[in-house]
């Protein structure tokens, strides 16, 4: 089950090259991405984070 999504800041989005569109669906529950996320989570649980990032994570 994915975590609740963070809310992006509109001011930050305005500086990007992306075109916002209502036509883009949410794929967070698509099996392809869910499977990928599960693998990623398992990998990070097994191997942790790089030391540099771990310090900042705590």
């Amino acid at each position: 089950m994915p975590l609740k999504r963070k809310q992006p800041k509109k001011s930050a989005i305005a500086k990007t090259s992306a075109i916002l569109s209502d036509q883009v669906a949410s794929y967070e529950n698509h099996p392809f991405f869910v499977k990928k996320a599960e693998r990623a989570k398992a990998f990070i649980e097994a191997h942790g984070l790089p030391k540099d990032l771990e310090k900042k994570h705590k």
Partner: peptide, 13 residues
């Protein structure tokens, strides 16, 4: 290519 984002900014096409 031009790319499109959902308003959540998590999904792109």
């Amino acid at each position: 290519y031009p790319y499109y984002a959902a308003k959540s900014f998590f999904d792109f096409e």
